[in-house]
């Protein structure tokens, strides 16, 4: 872990990875979207609206995964004072908020034709994902709430750790309580309840979303490191005058 503490070393590895990652991501998106729109069948119940799943489910998975990553960065920051964790946490939070927003919006678009409603207050899954979105927003607000960037990062890290309790609630809400939202299709007893012809686009899109997250994280972290360098150079220049 300490190996990546040096920003120059992190940048060297990230820059070497980025072209490959973006190429793989583009390929996965192309294949995933092709399967999602053309090479997969409509659902026996839902017809073509099932295709919303290929955006909705990967976005929801990434919303949870990004938050888990945010929590790991928070722990690294608070306990090990890892210098890069601060940069990565600040870079990851808006991406996670974006994924959560996509999951909420596409879920709403999917809910109308299938359930008959855009939103259902009182549904444990819908509400807990909304709470997840607010945790992301709170993290972003706290990060920028202090003049001293490190203090902001530390306050946001505490919030990120508090929000970890929400992750199992989001995941298992459909099992613990009766909900309008259907239970998990893939990680369930008895194996996947999704036909293989529909699982292909879903997994391709999930891979594409993961690649997209990593590319964005590298780009944002690179920009943040450059911003910090610029700032310290400006301070240095100001001292000279």
């Amino acid at each position: 872990m300490q190996f990546l503490a040096n920003p120059a070393r992190f940048l060297r590895i990230a820059n070497a990875l980025l072209p490959w990652l973006s190429l793989i991501t583009l390929g996965l998106f192309a294949a995933g979207l092709y399967y999602a729109f053309f090479a997969s069948p409509p659902d026996y119940q839902q017809g073509d609206s099932v295709r919303i799943m290929y955006i909705h489910v990967p976005a929801a998975w990434m919303a949870l995964m990004t938050y888990a990553a945010l929590a790991v960065f928070a722990l690294l920051l608070l306990v090990w004072k890892h210098p890069l964790a601060e940069v990565l946490a600040k870079s990851a939070a808006p991406i996670g908020a974006g994924f959560t927003l996509i999951a909420l919006a596409t879920g709403s678009l999917w809910g109308k034709p299938t359930w008959g409603t855009w939103w259902a207050w009182g549904d444990a899954r819908l509400t807990s994902v909304l709470v997840l979105f607010f945790f992301y927003l709170g993290h972003m607000a706290l990060t920028h709430a202090f003049d001293d960037a490190t203090r902001g990062a530390r306050a946001a890290a505490v919030l990120a750790l508090v929000g970890v309790v929400n992750l199992p609630v989001v995941k298992f809400s459909v099992d613990w309580w009766s909900t309008l939202h259907q239970p998990a299709s893939i990680s369930r007893i008895g194996g996947s309840a999704i036909d293989p012809s529909m699982l292909t686009p879903l997994l391709l899109m999930a891979g594409a979303f993961l690649g997209y997250f990593l590319c964005l994280l590298i780009l944002r972290a690179r920009a943040e490191l450059a911003r910090r360098k610029l700032r310290s150079l400006q301070l240095l220049a100001a001292e000279r005058d």
Partner: peptide, 18 residues
């Protein structure tokens, strides 16, 4: 005064259902 449809976690093409 409101009826919502709940769907289960099963997804399959119409031919498979048939």
């Amino acid at each position: 005064n409101e009826v919502l449809a709940k769907h289960d976690e099963t997804y399959m093409p119409p031919e498979v259902a048939e």
